[in-house]
C-alpha cells in the first residue's frame, strides 16, 4: 500500500529523515515512535506529500507520488491526515467542515455530502454538534471532528501525527477509542504517537526512529516486551517510568 524507498529529507543542511525505507501493507497498523526531533512527523508528512524528500521515492499502491503528476491528487486522496492541532476550518460549522471537500473535490451534491458527513459524525459520537462552530468544541471533540472530516473522503489509509498530544488527559481516551474502532474495522493506519499503551495494544508493528533513522522495526508486543536495540530499550525505560 505505502512504500518508502530510501527517502532523505533535509531542512537547509539539517538531515531530518536519513535514508528511510519502509513498507506498510493494507490493513496494517503501524506506530512511529521515538524521541522529540527524531523525524517521526517528517516521515509521516513525506508519505502524503506535505513534505517532499530530496532523495528516494514514495510509492502509493506502487505508483510514485510526484507533485504536478496527473495522478498526484488521486493518490493523495487515498490518504487521510490527522494533525496534532486539528486544523478545523474555524469560519465554518462542523457540518460545513465535513462537506467542503466532498463538494469541491469529490463533486458530491450537497444532500449526499451531508448524509455522508452525518454518518461519520455519528461514528465519532458527535452528530448533535453538527451545527456548532469549532470554537465551541473541546479539544477531544475537535479531534474527533477532524477524524470524521478525513473519513468523509473515503481514504484507504489514515495518517495520524500525535493526535492526542495537544489534548487534556481526560480527553485522550475518547480520541484513542475512535482510533481503536477504526483499527478494528480494518483501516490501514500509520500513527505517530507518544501513547505507548495505544501502540502496544493496537499496533501490529512499531517503528522506532532516532536522528532521522529507523533504529528498530518490530512486532508491537515484541518491541515492548523485549526490544532488540539498546537505544529503543533506553527510550522505553525513560518514557514508561
Amino acid at each position: 500500500m505505502i512504500k518508502l524507498k530510501s527517502i532523505t529529507k533535509r531542512f537547509n543542511q539539517f538531515v531530518a529523515v536519513d535514508n528511510v525505507s519502509l513498507e506498510i501493507k493494507k490493513g496494517e497498523i503501524v506506530c512511529l515512535i521515538g524521541p522529540s526531533g527524531s523525524g517521526k512527523s517528517t516521515v509521516l508528512r513525506c508519505i502524503n506529500g506535505l513534505e517532499v524528500p530530496e532523495e528516494g521515492q514514495v510509492l502509493i499502491n506502487d505508483t510514485p507520488l510526484i507533485k504536478d503528476d496527473e495522478k498526484y491528487t488521486d493518490l493523495k486522496l487515498k490518504m487521510g491526515f490527522v494533525f496534532q492541532h486539528f486544523h478545523l476550518f474555524p469560519h465554518m460549522n462542523v457540518l460545513d467542515n465535513l462537506t467542503l471537500a466532498q463538494i469541491h473535490v469529490k463533486d458530491r451534491n450537497e444532500t449526499e455530502a451531508k448524509d455522508i458527513a452525518m454518518k461519520y459524525l455519528k461514528r465519532v459520537g458527535l452528530e448533535e454538534k453538527a451545527l456548532e462552530y469549532p470554537s465551541k468544541l473541546s479539544g477531544g471533540q475537535k479531534q474527533r471532528v477532524a477524524i470524521a472530516r478525513s473519513l468523509c473522503m473515503n481514504p484507504e489509509v489514515m495518517l495520524f501525527d500525535e493526535p492526542t498530544s495537544a489534548l487534556d488527559p481526560e480527553m485522550v481516551i475518547e480520541v484513542l477509542s475512535v482510533m481503536q474502532e477504526l483499527a478494528q474495522e480494518g483501516m490501514t493506519m500509520v500513527v505517530v504517537t507518544h501513547e505507548m499503551g495505544f501502540a502496544r495494544t493496537v499496533a501490529d508493528r512499531v517503528i522506532f526512529l532516532e536522528d532521522g533513522q529507523i533504529v528498530e522495526e518490530n512486532h508491537a508486543e515484541e518491541f515492548f516486551a523485549n526490544p532488540k536495540s539498546e537505544r529503543a530499550r533506553s527510550f522505553l525505560n525513560k518514557v514508561m517510568h
Binding site: G49, T73, L77
Partner: peptide
C-alpha cells in the same frame, strides 16, 4: 495559520480553492 493550508491540501483542495474557501474568508 499554515495548518489551514495543510489541512485543505490533505483534503485535496487546490491552492485556488483553498484561497477562496478557506483562507480569504478568514
Amino acid at each position: 495559520d499554515k495548518g489551514q493550508w495543510e489541512a485543505a491540501e490533505t483534503l485535496g483542495l487546490s491552492n485556488f480553492q483553498t484561497m477562496k474557501l478557506v483562507i480569504l474568508p478568514q
